[in-house]
């Protein structure tokens, strides 16, 4: 099988870039290239990831400064050519700040950072997510909001990909992740790369969780 080429955009303050890269290499035999924020890049990857973290320290608004980085111009060009892009956590925030995805992510309703495993219901391409599907979340600003017309459009076009079964952050319609109208750009707050290795104090196992997400995603390529 041909090895997938994945590009991971890295900004100052990104901190899930290595986790994601190692996961893609170790579990899915991807060829990973890290793409530094200050340079444009050649569009030669099958898929692009915008990883989690605190790009530019989350100063101004999370994702707002990264959305204006030079590498993001290349990403926009890649998406225009039909390449896929996936934003996880801060990556999701960066994609909404870049208007590559609709809506916005604001402070959690509790005004507190939350790190825990959370039940999710898959929809669209992820609709086969097994009962009891969980992924870890870890964010302070994951409260998804959108104008009522936008929300109606996202819902009407079936572009929600995950909903929380027990809404942790106040997101409208329990939305945990969405895709764009072209279905090539995805964003979600949960961290599927953190659900590939077993832990003993919670019920995450490779078979059901992280792998499910990435396999469904790669099947779209």
């Amino acid at each position: 099988m041909k090895r997938l080429k994945a590009g991971i955009l890295v900004f100052p303050g990104s901190n899930c870039d290595r986790d994601l890269g190692q996961s893609l290499e170790n579990f899915f035999s991807c060829e990973v290239e890290y793409l530094w924020h200050s340079r444009s890049f050649e569009i030669q990857h099958d898929i692009y990831f915008v990883p989690g973290g605190f790009s530019y320290g989350d100063y101004l608004r999370s994702g707002a400064l990264a959305a204006r980085a030079r590498s993001m111009d290349s990403l926009k060009a890649a998406i225009k050519q039909g390449r896929m892009a996936v934003g996880i956590c801060n990556g999701f925030q960066i994609l909404t700040e870049s208007h590559l995805l609709e809506g916005a992510l604001i402070r959690n309703k509790s005004l507190k950072y939350i790190c825990r495993n959370i039940g999710l219901k898959g929809e669209g391409v992820f609709k086969d997510a097994p009962a009891g599907y969980h992924l870890p979340i870890s964010h302070g600003e994951g409260n998804f909001i959108a104008g009522s017309d936008t929300l109606k459009r996202i819902e009407g076009e079936g572009r929600v990909i995950f909903r929380y079964s027990d809404n942790p952050n106040g997101s409208m319609n329990d939305i945990a992740g969405i895709c764009d109208a072209s279905r090539r750009v995805y964003g979600l707050m949960p961290h599927p790369e953190r659900a590939l290795l077993p832990s003993l104090d919670d019920a995450l196992t490779a078979k059901r969780y992280g792998t499910f997400f990435f396999e469904k995603l790669f099947a779209l390529l």
Partner: peptide, 25 residues
């Protein structure tokens, strides 16, 4: 308290906070 801390980053977690000891790869 500890759910306000990121316990998972680095992909090392085998056992996080709340038990005898944290165990990380």
């Amino acid at each position: 308290v500890y759910e306000q801390y990121d316990t998972d980053i680095g992909l090392g977690k085998i056992i996080g906070p709340g038990q005898n000891a944290g165990v990380y790869r």
